[in-house]
């Protein structure tokens, strides 16, 4: 049994399959504990719908989603699932419940009926984990987008989850905010061993994941490590998806006689690759 299993999930909004509103078409995948998985795809590819399946916000029309053996269709274990799998949404303004940072972070643990002293501890450590501790008594609406998003993440961490699903958490942020959020996500994955499922359409963010799943029109188009997936440049281009510029450059150089042993996904690796080629001769 995997940590999260998605088995032949079909889902349509309006429950009207004839009109072609089927968003997910018999999708199956599984997520291991501690993994960092990125889900990529166009708007309308079904990636956000899939994100909401992991903690039972949406339930499959057919097929099953199980978390640690618990089916999301089972009402009795739903709270357990939501404690284990947290969800962070795209719009940083819409998911903070309380006006003050620390009070918002406390919201989840409070719902779980945890002892006040313990909540205090969890809130402090969650805020430290996302580097927002000194903002604990600030008004939430005055923070920058990146900071709000980190508070939202802290609100999930305070429930001590095994996994965080992030649905395009950086789509509405500026480059600095994006960087802050991505640094936080990676830190949580590496240091706290929290499983990360990141839904995004930024290729540079996806390149940081252990595994990449590309969704297209409700099915999985391809999956694998970022290097494997981005080496299928033709396939990605055909489906109008981006490829990191470093990988594009390497690919083009390859057709001009450069040898590529390993696909570079960022500028540094790409420079190294080019140097190796120039200096070898």
């Amino acid at each position: 049994m995997q940590f999260i299993d998605v088995d032949k999930v079909v889902f349509a909004y309006d429950n009207d399959e004839e009109t072609g509103n089927t968003v997910l078409k018999e999708i199956s995948l599984s997520i291991k504990k501690g993994e960092f998985v990125a889900l990529l795809g166009h708007n309308g590819s079904g990636k956000s719908t899939l994100a909401k399946m992991f903690n039972g916000i949406l339930l499959p029309d057919s097929g099953d989603v199980t978390v640690c053996g618990m089916n999301t269709k089972n009402d009795e274990t739903l709270l357990d699932i939501r404690r284990k799998v947290g969800l962070v949404l795209q719009n940083p303004d819409n998911q903070l419940v309380a006006s003050i940072v620390e009070e918002d972070v406390a919201f989840g643990p409070e719902n779980l009926g945890i002892d006040p002293v313990e909540i205090r501890k969890r809130v402090d450590s969650a805020l430290k984990a996302v580097d927002m501790y000194e903002y604990r008594d600030h008004a939430a609406y005055k923070l920058s987008g990146g900071q709000k998003q980190r508070v939202a993440i802290a609100g999930i961490i305070a429930m001590q989850p095994d996994c965080i699903v992030l649905d395009e958490p950086t789509a509405m942020l500026d480059p600095q905010g994006r960087q802050e959020v991505m640094d936080t996500i990676i830190k949580l994955n590496k240091e706290k061993k929290i499983t990360i499922i990141l839904i995004t359409h930024y290729m540079d963010e996806a390149a940081l994941a252990d595994r990449l799943l590309i969704l297209d029109n409700g099915t999985i188009l391809t999956q694998g490590s970022p290097k494997e997936v981005f080496s299928k440049i033709e396939l990605l281009k055909r489906h109008k998806l981006d490829v990191p510029q470093a990988a594009q450059l390497a690919y083009r150089l390859n057709s001009c006689g450069f040898k590529i042993d390993e696909l570079p996904l960022n500028a540094d690796d790409c420079v190294k690759m080019i140097l190796a080629q120039i200096e070898k001769v």
């Binding site: 709270l79 939501r82 719902n111 945890i114 002892d115 909540i119």
Partner: peptide, 17 residues
């Protein structure tokens, strides 16, 4: 959706920080 994801289920059994 965010509140549900954070296990909100009314006032019952809720504690306060």
């Amino acid at each position: 959706m965010a509140m549900e994801s954070r296990c909100y289920h009314g006032g019952e059994g809720r504690t306060r920080m």
